[in-house]
Every structure is written in structure tokens, then in C-alpha cells.
Design a protein around this nucleic acid. Structure first.
Length: 197
DNA sequence: CCCTGATTCGC
DNA sequence: GCGAATCAGG
């Protein structure tokens, strides 16, 4: 495979979006992450320091601290709540005027992509459920960005709160979930129709 | 171990 | 220019 304009464009776009070299390589196909990284460098778009020119001469007097303003391109938009109900009346006298600008309302979370099915109140074998509950105590609590093909992508908690993460335990080969979650995610169609009666 | 980007160097 | 091998980390 060669670096056609189109492929280079995809590379640029994804790199700008903060995708990893391996992800880009997978998307493009026919190249390895090394190829992608190599290309990125040749294109001169490796680590750009936001804000402008850096002298590329020698390094005369190195700044003590290499400031890293954390150039994380926020991948998820967080819409501002249009209107809210009457809010808490600020704390009265006792408290000092300690105005804490809390964002209150953790931001309306992502939920961007199609989420896997939730357990809900379906019929799931008690063992599977027990297994899941057990597993979720030991979940790695990964964030969306930390997921890979080999981590369980089962969402846990309420996406509208901080109490939300992904299982993250090792996923079964070829499956998006770990063993426990596969158990509740993929049910045989004949899984116990309604109980007798 | 899984992953990340950076660099080198023969092609 | 290309990218596998390697390096250096998390």
C-alpha cells in the first residue's frame, strides 16, 4: 500500500483527532503503526506545541520546566444544559464567602456511540448475574479512551454521573466483553423462554 | 503484559 | 520516501 492523498488525509485527520498510531493503522489497513508513525514524522506533524514557533536550533538555555498545557483535544462535546431548575440557595451566613464554582451537574455525559445492551430487568441466569456483580467490584474502571480491543467494554454505572466507567477486564478473544459480561450480553435465543406455565 | 510515540537505518 | 526493528517509556 502506498500513501495516496486520500490515505494521507485520513492519517492527518485521525492524528489531529488524537487517535493513536495503531488505531490509524487499523483504519487504513495495509500498514503497521510503525508506518503510520514514520509517516507522521515525515509529514512533520508529530508533537506540535500549541501556540507557535519553537526554535529548532540548539538548546541554548533550556527552560527549567517543560510546560505541558495538556493538549488533549476534548473528544466529547459537553453541551451546556440549556435551562435548569431553581438551584440551591447559596449557603447562608456561617460559611465564609467561599464561592466554589462547582459545575454542579457533572456535565451531560458522552453516550456518543452505540452502547452495548444493559442488563436491565431481563431474564438472566442468576449465576451470570452473580458473576457480573462480583466482577464489577473488581473492574478496572477504565475510561472510554482506555478501552482497547482486548478490554471488556461493558459500561457500568450511570453515564450521567461520575459513577460511570467500563469494566476493562480482559475480554474474550473475538468478543467485546469479558467472560462474565459475555454471559449476560449474549444469550441464546432459547434461553429459558418464560418459565413453565 | 498490554499499550504509547520516537528514532534509526537499510532498502 | 518508506517502514521494520528497536528504543524508551506508561
Amino acid at each position: 500500500m502506498s500513501w495516496t492523498d486520500e490515505r494521507v488525509e485520513t492519517l492527518k485527520r485521525m492524528w489531529a483527532e488524537g487517535q493513536s498510531a495503531s488505531q490509524i493503522a487499523k483504519e487504513l489497513g495495509g500498514v503497521t503503526r510503525n508506518a503510520v508513525i514514520g509517516k507522521v514524522h515525515r509529514l512533520g506533524l508529530s508533537n506540535r506545541v500549541a501556540g507557535g514557533k519553537e526554535d529548532e536550533d540548539d538548546t541554548p538555555a533550556a527552560p527549567a520546566t517543560s510546560a505541558k498545557p495538556e493538549p488533549r483535544p476534548e473528544p466529547v462535546a459537553r453541551p451546556e444544559p440549556a435551562a435548569r431548575a431553581p438551584e440551591r440557595p447559596a449557603a447562608p451566613a456561617a460559611a465564609p464567602s467561599n464561592v466554589t464554582p462547582l459545575p454542579l451537574r457533572k456535565a451531560i455525559v458522552p453516550a456518543g456511540q452505540p452502547l452495548p445492551p444493559q442488563p436491565s430487568a431481563n431474564e438472566i441466569s442468576p449465576e451470570a448475574l452473580a458473576s457480573v456483580r462480583e466482577v464489577e467490584k473488581r473492574a478496572r474502571r477504565l475510561t472510554l479512551m482506555e478501552l482497547t480491543e482486548r478490554t471488556c467494554k461493558w459500561p457500568i454505572g450511570d453515564p450521567a454521573t461520575d459513577d460511570f466507567w467500563f469494566c476493562g477486564l480482559p475480554s474474550l478473544p473475538g468478543k467485546p466483553y469479558c467472560e462474565a459480561h459475555v454471559g449476560v450480553a449474549f444469550q441464546p435465543m432459547s434461553a429459558r423462554r418464560d418459565r413453565r406455565r
